[in-house]
Design a protein around this nucleic acid. Structure first.
Length: 427
RNA sequence: GCGGGCGUCGCCAAGUGGUUAAGGCAGCGGCUUGUGGCGCCGCUAUUCGGGGGUUCGAAUCCCCUCGCUCGCCCCA
């Protein structure tokens, strides 16, 4: 029995911790609803092919981090490592792009990547993703960045850094890649080993290598920014201007590439120093070619994902406080216990947190329990009350001073409601 | 995949070779069988992540292994 354990990189979320999760999720979902974004749910398990084609074979995520296995029907299946590819697939497959070319969608759920766990990183983790499908205007880029920024702001998270970059469109990138590859051939030896390996696999990724030696060498390399078309340049400066109008502070990072192949034009990341080495809480960008590449109609899109574990880490302690019990029902005796159960059901029609003591323990014990839970009030039903068809109700404040008891008949809903309104529902 | 740190009760922890493994919190029971916060009393690890070895004797030393954690890489 003792050797049954959860798998490495997975965690049990226990009731105490879930208070914070639920509070954070509530705020996030409210914000999404207000921006009139609709939910979409796709399977956690997909064909492996989807991610190879969607994310890109040369990426780290696909080449070494996927949970892939052969199922009983000999299909290669993969636990999703991210959400965008699935959403794109679902939209194409369900013909949603011809009927509703414009849509704003969100999803939330577990993702899986086989990596070494560390602070802010698990093998099963959770993401909130937002995708604006069919939108190509700069304003949609701005709106989605603002949305991410505001969600973090609503949670009271301070000291965030927004980094932005532009990757241009496909032809910008090809032009750049040509001369970048030439430079890489010549300067190969001044790069670190990882980066050398990427020359053939995924050269763009070399740009955001964190190796100091490589970063130093890259200072003399051609810059993607200089290969952007006039149109791409304009798009990017328009984006910056809009962010300034909205007073969203940003930092340009020309080396921000992002690890998934599908990004075009705008790429952005929001980081926090409070997270340790896994500093990114939100990452996103535009992916105008993905849906077409996956066999759908030519559909521009932009999206982001927020890592929920990291979000929880950043969110304030005030979200960890549980709601106190409003009424604790102390009860003992055969008839009393039935009456108590009936009363507890009645009380749950109000916006109250009601706990019925089921222990059958002594009154003294039940009072202690009510006190431990910091219940705002108590109801007492014993044999005496049961016989008379009434119960005792009273406030139960922490000072321990005797509050006035009130006796109410089980039939008298009007007095009960009055008491609740006067004592519990008013601030 | 590669480095560093760590593993004693549900939680926090003392103990670094000698025969009963401190203490605190939480939990349970009692003082007080129908009225709470405080207090007092009692109970709660045959065992120190697991396995092997050294020794008369190990939680303490050695080896292996598992796990956790932090960092590299990468990402949310």
């Amino acid at each position: 029995m003792n050797n049954l354990k959860n798998l490495r990189g997975t965690v049990d979320l226990l009731p105490d911790q879930l208070i914070k999760w639920q509070n954070v999720e509530k705020i996030v979902l409210e914000q999404l609803a207000r921006a009139s974004i609709n939910e979409i749910r796709t399977p956690i398990l997909e064909m492996t092919e989807l991610f190879i084609r969607g994310i890109g074979e040369g990426t780290d995520v696909v080449s070494k981090e996927m949970y892939t296995f052969i199922d009983r029907g000999e299909r290669s299946c993969t636990l999703r490592p991210e959400g965008t590819a699935s959403v794109a697939r679902a939209l194409i497959q369900n013909g949603m792009l011809s009927n509703h070319p414009l849509q704003k969608l969100w999803y939330m759920g577990p993702m899986f990547r086989y990596e070494r766990p560390q602070a802010g990183r698990q093998r099963q983790f959770h993401q909130l993703g937002v995708e604006f499908i069919g939108y190509d205007s700069v304003r949609s880029d701005v709106e989605i960045i603002a949305l991410a920024w505001d969600i973090l702001g609503k949670l009271g998270i301070k000291e965030l850094n927004l980094e932005i970059n532009t990757l241009g469109d496909l032809s910008d990138r090809l032009n750049f890649q040509k001369s970048f590859l030439k430079w890489l051939e010549i300067n190969k030896n001044s790069l670190d080993l990882d980066s050398q390996n990427r020359i053939t696999k995924n050269p763009l990724r070399i740009l955001d290598s964190k190796n100091a030696q490589t970063q130093n060498a890259l200072k003399n390399a051609p810059r993607l920014f200089n290969f952007l078309s006039e149109k791409s340049h304009k798009r990017y400066s328009h984006l910056k201007k809009n962010l300034e109008i909205l007073k969203i502070p940003y930092v340009e990072n020309f080396n921000l590439v992002r690890g998934l192949d599908y990004y075009t034009h705008t790429a952005f990341e929001i980081t926090s120093g409070a997270l340790g080495s896994q500093a990114t809480v939100c990452g996103g960008g535009r992916y105008d070619d993905l849906i077409k590449q996956m066999g759908g109609p030519n559909t521009p899109a932009i999206g982001f994902a927020i890592g929920l574990e990291r979000l929880i880490l950043l969110a304030g302690k005030e979200l960890e406080i549980p709601r106190n019990t409003d009424i604790y029902i102390i009860n003992q005796g055969l008839i009393a216990e039935s009456l108590a159960m009936d009363l507890s059901r009645k009380l749950r029609n109000y916006d109250l947190l009601v706990e019925l003591d089921l222990s059958g323990a002594s009154f003294s014990k039940q009072f202690k329990k009510a006190n431990k839970l910091k219940s705002k009030s108590i109801i007492v039903i014993g044999d005496d009350e049961a016989v008379k068809g009434e119960f005792i109700i009273r406030l139960f404040d922490q000072s321990g001073n005797g509050n006035e008891e009130e006796v109410i008949s089980f039939e008298n809903d009007i007095d009960l409601e009055k008491w609740i309104n006067n004592n519990l529902l008013v601030k």
